[in-house]
Write a protein that binds this DNA or RNA. Structure first.
Length: 618
RNA sequence: GCACUCCUAGCUCAGCUGGAUAGAGCGCUGCCCUCCGAAGGCAGAGGUCGAUGGUUCGAAUCCAUCGGAGUGCGCCA
């Protein structure tokens, strides 16, 4: 018993969830198709299993002109030879086999180079097949619940909400692409003492529905009401008592309280959906905290019946240090001294509900790292309860948003700070997106004046929003995101617009080419063409890694590599007209159009998986 | 005090299960548009990977200790 509910130490938690993919029907690693013959020859020579060699393959070090390298340390141990000798021996074996691959021994490493034509012959046609672009069967037959965004009613979607919202959205899309069946859940903060204050303030000020609806922004209207009400309550204990009474009435199902609660919720949701629409985000479930209000009693009763709870200073707690050992320093709080329930109980009830509805194999909570302790606590309680899903839940944490502050005040250095902008205002997500769209519009107007107004408006939305979203996803999620308006809304360098631009160039070439001819991939003999092909071929493995680590940034980095290879290839045509896709040689053009298509569909799909649009012109 | 996340180039960050001479973007210095889209490409300068020990044939990567930054720690979520 002891230790069974311990929180995962460091990264062990991830490994515990890993298990072999069920029913992988789609070819998972395109690159394997290329390396298989060579690996087979080496394995036959050594008398081992090719599958044992495959995980050893690694990218070659910079400066070695090779596509992939096999470090020979481990095989050498098996063969009883020094690694450099074995590498040399294997080089001879590969070169003699005539497989379209050149092998060079560099010390203990065996460097493998594939002839561009052989690479293209093996990979180009399958990679240009649209339905398979960025698909994997790794999650086939498995179900995932993803809990993300989760804003509070009567408050704005602040800029920092972009983190949970877009990480969750991207994870939902990536899991789906990897074969999982996904349910997207928005666990609304639609319950709590704040509503008592709101209703109290509303009735005290004698506000009406008409006044709310006439407000230019209903969430702002509610938010200001809340600020007035809580300030008034702070000054006057009678008002605080009134707020508490309304909270209780709401909990007891009082008709007037319930009605106002619904009004506040509807007003907030319509505003949220505007922003979600801008971001292209949607949900399958909007069940909020209120939904679970009458479902926590049974969970508490079960905890008590199993003797897991105790009373401390009037509050109901689970004494985790006692029950789970010294991994926990403090108990988890389930119920306030005044009888009110706390959110650990609500999360337990909600997870039971989700497991009953969806029978998930994995359940993700995309919530900032500041709540790590809370997740460790209720995950541990789930184990104590013996819940079958207790090993299937994951807290997908992320770092906070820091703003640049160059006037921090007396005696403070300019620097990165949490929270507000320099004028002390909360930055709203909608305002950031709108400014990004405006900036994108101005740039497109300058760079591509021929684009019709109507199309430019749509493209500006895709580019502006894409810049902000990609800025949030391109780096590891546990990092804090540093946001500076001027930097985040620039469109050069490693940005969303860079990826979209590479995609638009490819679309432009296809447009000019007209109907796609069926070319012979073996004509793709250039080194830069091979690099594009390899970058695409690696993406299925990249997707699998991104899903297992719950890390959209892994996919983002893979797409940057692909877009870079595409840009190098297409730019080569600026100087060398023989390198162009659209040239005099019809057969060569037809072959290169296969590669254009493969790169285009992978960039478009990759961008979609991150939550960005891929316009055909920009 | 305890726990968690982190420390790689002037700045912002990559670096897959430990692998060869640690990479990219921004900024800086030079180039490349009579246009397949320059929102791009090429070249250059710039790093004892926070420190010290340890494991290993091999460590930015794993372990320990120390230093620094941020976040959290019973009646908010």
């Amino acid at each position: 018993m002891a230790g069974s509910c311990q929180p995962p130490r460091r990264r062990q938690g991830q490994a515990a969830h890993r298990h072999p993919p069920a029913g992988a029907t789609i070819p998972r690693r395109m690159l394997d198709q290329l390396t298989a013959p060579v690996l087979g020859a080496i394995a036959a020579h050594l008398g081992t299993d090719p599958a044992a060699l495959r995980p050893l393959l690694a990218p070659p070090a910079k400066g070695f002109a090779a596509d992939i390298a096999l470090p020979c340390f481990q095989p050498a141990k098996g063969a009883g030879k020094p690694p450099p000798a074995l590498a040399a021996e294997l080089a001879g074996v590969v070169n003699a086999a005539g497989l379209g691959a050149t092998a060079t021994a560099a010390g203990p490493f065996l460097n493998l180079s594939f002839a561009p034509a052989a690479t293209a012959a093996a990979l180009a046609t399958p990679l240009a097949a649209a339905p398979a672009a960025l698909r994997s069967g790794a999650g086939a037959g498995r179900r995932a619940c993803i809990d993300f965004s989760s804003p509070n009613i009567a408050k704005h979607l602040a800029f920092h909400h972009i983190r949970s919202t877009m990480l969750g959205n991207s994870l939902a899309r990536m899991y789906t692409a990897a074969g999982w069946s996904v349910t997207r859940i928005n666990f609304l903060g639609d319950w709590g003492t704040a509503f008592g204050r709101l209703i109290s303030g509303w009735t005290r000020e004698g506000l009406t529905l008409d006044q709310l609806q006439a407000a230019p922004d209903q969430v702002t209207f509610l938010n200001e009401l809340y600020v007035r009400a809580s300030q008034a309550a702070k000054a006057d204990p009678a008002l605080e008592e009134d707020a508490r009474r309304w909270s209780k009435k709401l909990e007891d199902g009082d008709a007037e309280a319930r009605h106002l609660w619904q009004v506040f919720k509807d007003a907030s949701l319509s505003e949220f959906k505007r922003v979600y629409g801008l971001l292209g985000v949607d949900f399958d479930s909007w069940k909020g905290e209120a939904y679970y209000e009458d479902k926590m009693g049974p969970v508490l009763a079960e905890l008590e019946a199993k003797g897991l709870t105790s009373i401390d200073q009037g509050a109901t707690i689970v004494d985790l240090p006692k029950l789970c050992g010294k991994a926990f320093k403090i108990p988890a709080l389930l119920k306030r001294a005044d009888g009110g329930t706390l959110y650990a109980t609500r999360d337990l009830a909600a997870s039971d509900d989700r497991f009953a509805d969806f029978a998930f194999d994995r359940s993700l909570y995309v919530v900032d790292l500041g709540q790590s302790l809370h997740f460790q606590q209720w995950f541990a309680i789930a184990k104590l309860l013996g819940r079958p899903w207790a090993e299937r839940v994951r807290h997908v944490g992320f770092g906070i948003v820091l703003m640049w502050n160059d006037e921090p005040g007396e005696g403070l250095e300019p620097g990165w700070a949490k929270g507000r902008t320099r004028n002390g205002k909360i930055m709203l997500l909608r305002e950031v997106l709108e400014e990004a769209i405006e900036r994108a519009d101005a740039i497109i107007r300058e760079k591509n004046p021929e684009l019709p107004d109507a199309e430019r408006a749509k493209v500006a939305r895709a580019v502006g929003v894409g810049a902000v979203v990609f800025n949030d996803l391109k780096n590891g999620r546990t990092n804090d995101v540093k946001f500076k308006f001027e930097d985040a809304l620039r469109f050069d360098g490693e940005t969303g617009p860079y990826l979209q631009y590479a995609h638009a160039r490819l679309c432009s070439i296809e447009r000019k080419a007209g109907a796609a001819a069926v070319g012979d991939p073996a004509l793709l003999a250039r080194e830069d063409e091979k690099q594009v092909l390899l970058a695409i071929a690696r993406l299925t493995a990249v997707l699998d890694r991104a899903v297992e680590a719950d890390e959209p940034s892994i996919l983002a980095q893979g797409l940057l590599t692909l877009a870079g290879a595409v840009s190098v290839w297409l730019s080569a045509g600026n100087k060398d007209h023989g390198a162009r896709v659209l040239g005099d040689d019809a057969a060569l053009t037809a072959a290169r159009l296969i590669l254009v298509r493969a790169a285009r569909i992978h960039l478009a799909e990759g961008l979609r998986l991150l939550g960005l649009d891929a316009p055909e012109r920009m």
